[in-house]
Write a protein that binds this DNA or RNA. Sequence first.
DNA 1: AAAGACCACAACCGCAGTCGC
DNA 2: GGCGACTGCGGTTGTGGTCTT
Length: 320
Amino acid sequence: MGRRPCCEKVGLKKGRWTAEEDDRLKKYILANGEGSWRSLPKNAGLLRCGKSCRLRWINYLRADLKRGNITTEEEDVIIKLHASLGNRWSLIASHLPGRTDNEIKNYWNSHLSRQIQTFRRRNDDGDSVIVDVARLSLPPRRKGGRGRRRKEEVEAEVEAEGEAAREILSPPTPELERESTVCGGVDDPTEEEIINKPPEGRHDVGGSLTLNYNNDVFGEDDMSLDLDELLTNVEMEWDDDYAIGTCESNTADASVARAVSDAGAAELDVGGDCSSISSSFSLDSPWNWESFAGGLEWDAGEDFAATVAESDAVISWLFS
DNA sequence: AAAGACCACAACCGCAGTCGC
DNA sequence: GGCGACTGCGGTTGTGGTCTT
């Protein structure tokens, strides 16, 4: 026994909407308001499924939709939110006025995921435990529901999620307690080398960092999240305009994204199922571990108090 | 100029959450 | 509490336009 179709499909039209259908739907909704999608097609004189009408209105006909390409700023927001929220397109869209979840989903699938996939590397012999720290504190997904939610409910949810998103976008910078042997055993480049070296070529940097999370949620005093594998091999490739970060990791779902600000600062995001770590640094000066760690920011979720107990890096510069 | 490949985006489909009866 | 109706969401597919050969 199959599922009952969402609406009677016999005789219903599928495929692209015509201008006349758009006009009819738009006029009906402007006159009668949204909702009652099941009965809407019949009342509006459309040979379409109610779901199709809803999609058409939400993704195309609504007056508050923003047209045009996704801007760099919007792309930045999408990358950051996706690193923390995953494929929760509607939630991501709620932070981009005038953009729909479908639009963002399409943009991600056709642009961003490919970019990121290009720089993603996997190490098949990894057995690291995946701890999705950032997502643990998120509210559960809400799906469906009959009728409209009360306005207060919606506002409260948007506000709560907005707070979370703001924290993700600008997390507090933790105080780093660096050990004295940060560059142990490896010769740093001289100041002259740094000054004279143009921001191009290849900088290979190896480092490790351990973060300890005080975790009351799991009833453990101290849950250690070892990021050694995550940051074992970070390679920076310089371009005229931006830096691209790649990361080799045993963590199955670690990913790296890049973002560029107008000021010329680059940002390396290490996201995915291992919390979210990012560091900003200027392209005007050569990249190094100190500047990366100095600008280190992360989002550990509101239920977690994150402290850096140990930070340890072995650095090597290989100028090509 | 034609054919095939590729890409972007619109639209569809099925699942799942919530509500009213 | 069970069930069906309704709706929102995310994955997937289809289609038209553009680019490449």
